[in-house]
Design a protein around this nucleic acid. Structure first.
Lengths: 106, 106
DNA sequence: GAGTAATACTGCAATATTAATATATTCGCG
DNA sequence: CGCGAATATATTAATATTGCAGTATTACTC
């Protein structure tokens, strides 16, 4: 019996789901998560982010590149500095979730 | 000049953040995401999930084990079958986010 | 143009994840 | 007990991510 059973009361469509996994993967990493957290309050330079995230410049820059490739962040240059900001709206929502749900102790 | 600048208007505490990254990582994977999506509507057996996710039994079981290890899902045995369910509240919230924010076209 | 600060990129070793296949285990039943 | 269905685990090969060090690039200032 070869039933197909595309259940779907669920409903996240496969493409959206794949894209979502991509975006979410960006958040599943402490450093990236911290960077995004810092960006939540507005655009920041790489150096500023470096301070917020307590990581080397290279590390921060690299994770920013990863996220840029996935369309999660965006940048604009202002002279010698480059300002980054969050472009993917999901990110803000998910960060909000993390805070609201929270898990106080553990 | 060695400024420390632990900025923190942000506020997700490091431990929570690390734990959050763990949980989120579970969602950053198409198969796991699909499994969780299926579990959203209530507990299901491995075989049922297999149908929903269109993957082999071993694959599903393995990802379930991963998520169980991270405290994202939980199971209960009923005779020969094992029912899984979501235990981490964040998951529901994040799935909701994915749906609500959404990214219609791209 | 030289010097310097800010940012990006490249290559590589270490590690982690994934996927696939095969093999166990557990349970219910006759 | 012995069998079949449901689920779990082990193994292993392929691939992806990380972290790091070094180097390049770009843009200011003088």
């Amino acid at each position: 019996m070869s039933t197909i059973s595309v259940a779907s009361l669920s409903a996240i469509d496969p493409d959206v789901l794949a894209k979502a996994a991509e975006v979410i993967k960006c958040l599943g990493h402490p450093l990236r998560l911290r960077i995004l957290e810092a960006l939540e309050s507005g655009e920041k330079t790489v150096t500023e982010l470096q301070g917020h995230a307590d990581a080397t410049q290279a590390a921060v820059s690299q994770q920013l590149a990863t996220m840029r490739a996935r369309g999660v962040v965006d940048n604009r240059r202002d002279g010698a500095r480059v300002f980054y900001r969050i472009t993917e709206p999901k990110v803000m929502a998910i960060l909000a979730c993390i805070r609201s749900c929270d898990l106080p102790r553990e």
